[in-house]
Amino acid sequence: MSKIIIYEHFNFEGISREFTSSVSNLVQENFNDCISSLKVIGNPWVTYSGVNFSGTQEVYEEGEYARVEHNDSISSLEMVTEDLTDPQITLYEHVDYQGRSIVLKNETNLCHGSFNDIASSHKVQRGAWVLYEHVDRHGAKIVARASRDVPNYGGFNDQLSHVCPLKPGKPTITAEVLWDKKEENVKSVILDSICGLNHGESEQRFSTELCREYEGSVTDNFSFSNATEITMGTSFSVNVEMMKGSNNLSLSNTFTVEKGSSNTRTEKKCVQISLPATIPPRSKLTVNVVRKELDVKVPVKLTITTGSHSREEFGEYRCQSGNSITTEYKEDKI
């Protein structure tokens, strides 16, 4: 969720307020003209020196700002709700969208081309932009938004030199494991087989130690769809919890996934198995140490939320669990 946290003093000190939607009048929130620092989470926010989103504008993308541009002079806050992932703006040479035009899709220093200091109107097709009077994001500015075309810059005519699209905040990803669509396979593997013979007429103690340790393991793996648009370095958690079913096996853990890194994890542990202490008269006792190996593949629905926009993708979680180690006994008369 996109939100802004505003503070009364510099360095995030003093009284604070948190908002998740635009505020047209900070007087009503008892926080007018007193903001000195702020934090933004998610999509950018625009601050205004006047109420009802009027006056001098400043834009704050996701991050922490120990000092704001205009201390103690903010009266309204507006959250940027546009989809910022694929921006596009058209600049026009004259007012009312006349004359030459140029289409931009990324940050541009107009001093390097033929459109410097000549724009007088614009239309935003996608996203939100900041138009600057000088290069390197300096001087007077205009915040340009989709569906808010500006036919006349007025005093800003023929002064535009730098254009920059606003960036979306870091996406948040929630993962839903679709257990009803899982594929499951279980097989039994004999790890050890121990035999004891008793030819006598009375019980005998088992000829080997009473317990042994065996190594089990659980391997988690997550794979993204080939068409994923999730960027490198993005991480999220997959909460895995499958209760015991017909195979009497269960999984329960939280698996952290990061795009661009190895998404395989193996955990090993020793399992101690107790063996019988005695063998009946005239009997052969065979003890098989058996590991049940569970292989589960299940689709995972990923909901990627950027600002106020969400989309869905799918991946696959796979777990190979071999921690269930038991003993099976077979007794034969001799």
Rank of each mutant, 00 (worst) to 15 (best):
S2Y: 10
K3Q: 14
I4A: 11
I5Y: 00
I6A: 00
I6F: 00
E8Y: 01
E18P: 02
E18Q: 14
S21C: 07
S22W: 00
V23G: 02
V27C: 06
Q28T: 08
N30Q: 14
N30L: 09
D33Q: 11
C34L: 09
L38E: 03
V40R: 05
P44A: 12
W45L: 03
W45Q: 05
T47E: 02
G50N: 14
S54Q: 14
T56E: 02
E61Y: 01
E62D: 07
G63E: 05
R67I: 00
I74N: 01
I74G: 02
S76T: 04
L84Y: 05
Q88D: 05
I89D: 07
T90Y: 03
T90I: 15
T90D: 08
L91V: 04
D96A: 14
Q98I: 08
L104K: 12
N106F: 10
N106Q: 15
L110I: 08
G113L: 02
S114A: 14
S114H: 11
N116K: 12
V124L: 08
G127L: 07
G127H: 07
W129C: 09
V130H: 09
L131P: 01
G139H: 06
A140Q: 15
R145G: 03
P151C: 10
G154A: 10
D158H: 04
Q159N: 02
V163F: 05
K167I: 11
K170L: 11
P171I: 12
I173T: 05
K182S: 12
E183M: 06
S188L: 06
D192K: 08
I194R: 13
G196C: 10
G196A: 13
G200P: 02
E203S: 07
E203N: 10
R205N: 13
R205Y: 09
R205K: 11
E209Y: 05
L210Q: 08
R212W: 01
E213Q: 14
E213L: 03
S217V: 00
S217D: 02
T219P: 00
S223N: 07
S225A: 09
T228C: 04
E229T: 14
I230D: 05
M232Q: 13
T234K: 13
V238D: 01
E241H: 15
N248H: 06
F255H: 06
T256M: 04
V257I: 09
K259C: 04
S262D: 12
T264H: 07
E267N: 13
C270T: 13
A277I: 10
P281G: 06
S283F: 08
T286S: 13
V289T: 07
D295S: 15
V298H: 11
H309P: 00
H309V: 14
E313S: 04
E313L: 03
G315F: 05
G315T: 08
R318F: 02
R318A: 09
C319M: 03
G322E: 05
S324L: 06
T327H: 07
K330I: 10
E331F: 07
I334P: 03
